[in-house]
């Protein structure tokens, strides 16, 4: 009997699992989060291989196929210009995913260094940065994004910048809180005590420890950024026609609700599925990285 127990005990002692491995294990044990991840992978594949997958050119108009209901030739029907809705939904994934990821990279690029700086230095730098963040958070997210997009000019790049800048304060808050938490650890004190310069302690010892909460925030922020991009495109401040975007497709669908309801159904479903998947993965990551919060 002892021979059957010994190997596993030995294995556990010899190969202790790192916190990252444990988190990954916990994440993989959450089926809904794994399904979310699979759907995201599918969306990414669709966006990358859009020219190969899409049955038609997404901007090619056809006057003989205006507002045709879903059929074998056009699975999701055609729009007011005779364009294939499925092809536009497939190509629309590019704008939405790109906007989601780029906006969050911009937000993290501004927010994480600012949060690290504020949390690590504390004092007046922290006070000034925190007040700026308070001021930005006082402007409701979408209203600030609309105002920025309006002043910068309506196109997808400016929409991504507007969403990224409006989201940055949230990253700064998360990074600051995580930095304050990590800075109180003994190994940070030890790194300071042996004479490491402040920036080195912050980058080498604190930064790696704030990655998990930033990752969770990042995943949930991509979901919010996809909705924000769709909202800006819906209002005419994002991707400009004829280039396909889920938000702008819903904008034009509004005019034909009674005649062509399918125009509103499919782009909306695509946004819903993409956002839901990122939310599921974000929730799964949060639970995996901090199991106490479950």
């Amino acid at each position: 009997m002892s021979t059957t127990v010994a190997p596993s005990v030995t294995r556990d002692v010899v190969m202790p699992r790192s916190p990252l491995q444990l988190a990954l294990r916990r994440f993989l044990h959450r089926p809904v989060a794994v399904i979310g991840l699979a759907v995201i992978a599918l969306f990414i594949a669709v966006a990358i291989f859009a020219p190969l997958i899409a049955p038609y050119d997404p901007v090619a108009t056809s006057w003989s196929a205006i507002r045709k209901a879903p059929s074998a030739a056009h699975w999701m029907g055609t729009d007011e210009n005779g364009r294939d809705v499925l092809s536009r939904v497939i190509f629309g994934a590019r704008a939405s995913l790109l906007a989601g990821v780029v906006a969050v990279l911009i937000a993290a690029g501004i927010g994480v260094p600012a949060g690290l700086l504020a949390g690590f230095t504390e004092g007046w730098v922290d006070s000034v940065l925190s007040r700026i963040v308070d001021a930005m958070l006082a402007c409701p997210f979408l209203i600030l994004a609309i105002a920025l997009a309006a002043f910068l000019g309506p196109d997808l790049t400016n929409a991504m910048i507007a969403i990224g800048v409006s989201t940055a304060p949230r990253f700064m808050r998360v990074a600051r809180a995580a930095t304050l938490d990590a800075s109180s650890n003994d190994y940070v004190e030890a790194a300071r005590a042996i004479g490491n310069p402040g920036w080195r302690v912050a980058v080498r010892h604190v930064l790696p420890n704030i990655v998990p909460p930033v990752m969770v925030q990042g995943t949930l922020a991509i979901a919010a950024a996809i909705i924000a991009e769709a909202s800006l495109s819906f209002l005419g401040l994002g991707q400009q026609p004829p280039a396909p975007s889920w938000g702008s497709m819903l904008n034009s669908a509004q005019r034909f609700l009674s005649q062509a309801p399918w125009l509103a159904v499919f782009p909306g479903l695509a946004i819903f599925l993409a956002v839901l998947s990122f939310n599921l993965v974000g929730d799964g990551l949060r639970d995996a990285l901090d199991p106490r919060g479950r």
């Binding site: 909202s231 819906f234 819903l250 669908a253 609700l257 509103a264 946004i271 819903f272 839901l276 939310n279």
Partner: peptide, 18 residues
């Protein structure tokens, strides 16, 4: 709750109008 968080406001509005 998660579905509610993931549904774009304007799409829900359009679907309800429909």
């Amino acid at each position: 709750g998660l579905a509610g968080l993931s549904t774009p406001t304007f799409w829900l509005g359009i679907m309800l109008i429909l």
